[in-house]
């Protein structure tokens, strides 16, 4: 099963297995990882599962579709960066094994 490392804003890292087909958000929710609140449950309605993709993974993970729901929700989220994504929109696949994401200071 592919592995994802979630790094809290304070630097605490959590490496967990996330099944293929499950979202990176759900992987955090299922492992009770602090810093991803996922208030809407993965509907891309709230932007409380915001993460930064580590640079070496950016190309493989990809960007949000321009003008789409995710890009719109991110446009006014707090502390966004060039490598911001909503983790509910990243579905786990085998080649993402080893993915590293970082959490912002807060989701609200």
């Amino acid at each position: 099963m592919p592995n994802v490392t979630y790094i809290e804003h304070n630097g605490t890292a959590h490496a967990v297995d996330v099944p293929v087909g499950t979202s990176v958000m759900q992987g955090a929710v299922d492992n009770n990882i602090p810093g991803i609140d996922a208030d809407c449950g993965g509907e891309c309605a709230c932007a409380t599962c915001h993460v930064y993709i580590e640079p070496e993974w950016e190309a493989l993970v990809g960007k949000p579709a321009e003008g789409g729901m995710e890009a719109s929700m991110l446009s006014f989220a707090a502390a966004t960066q060039e490598n911001s994504r909503l983790s509910c929109q990243i579905e786990m696949r085998a080649e993402l094994d080893g993915l590293v994401v970082r959490m912002p200071d807060g989701q609200h």
């Binding site: 932007a47 729901m69 929700m73 991110l74 446009s75 006014f76």
Partner: peptide, 10 residues
């Protein structure tokens, strides 16, 4: 209109 929602909330 998700961008208007996100902006409005802020």
């Amino acid at each position: 209109a998700p961008e208007s929602f996100a902006a409005g909330r802020m």
